[in-house]
Amino acid sequence: MGRDSSLNRIEPSIAVVRRWMVRTRLDTDAVLLNRLSIETHPGRLLVLICLFAFISGAVTGSFGAFGGGNTGQIVYSAIKVPMLLLITFCLCLPSFLVVNSLLGLRSDLRIVLQALLVTQSGIAIVLAALSPCIAVWYASDGDYQHAILANVGAFAIASVVGQVVLRRCYRPMIAKNTRHQTMMRLWFFIYAAVGIQMGWVLRPFIGSPSAALHFFRQEAWSNAYIVVWRVLVRTLFG
């Protein structure tokens, strides 16, 4: 009974996000704005994000379990993927809202927040939808490097879909005020910049078979950008 009622609450939210994933070109801006403001329930979307990111994380962390190794990574990753999405979201929000106000877009703040939540939900849904593929990959291929590649691929697809959903949600707002276009690009930039470092800090998601189980990597935290830069310099200049 309980499961039924929670499913009943989640399902309309999935339908809402799904409608933003399918083509919106035929809808007028007014219809789209109306859809964003009326159909979107922030609380339900947050539950949806947590749930789907949890599923995706659990599958990502199941690499060791498929090889008969530790299963603890499943729990850790199931917690870490929602953390990745939500903490990044929360860190980026204050500056985004202040700059929105400064550009005179305060009156659209509620609808902007709803657009961002729909985008986050889109990312979480795609990640969860791809998790069966990841599971099949894990079951058929025991190579850790290949597992990393599969997950990078899944995150890349989710990011592209997120970008598409964000653009569709923003379309009616941009029609109203072109400054929203700047803000949409700014959000994408801040979110990606913080998200990359957050993903780096929260490693491991998959769990190397040779390493012991830990929530965070045992070595000191480092900066993803500096690491990438050093690898690049080493590769190019030896």
Partner: peptide
């Protein structure tokens, strides 16, 4: 200052996770 403080959470996160003083 409002813009600066609103960027504070991002700065705090990078401060915690980055060992490089120069960065």
């Amino acid at each position: 200052l409002a813009v600066l403080a609103s960027l504070g959470p991002i700065v705090a996160f990078f401060s915690v996770s980055t060992p490089s003083y120069d960065f």
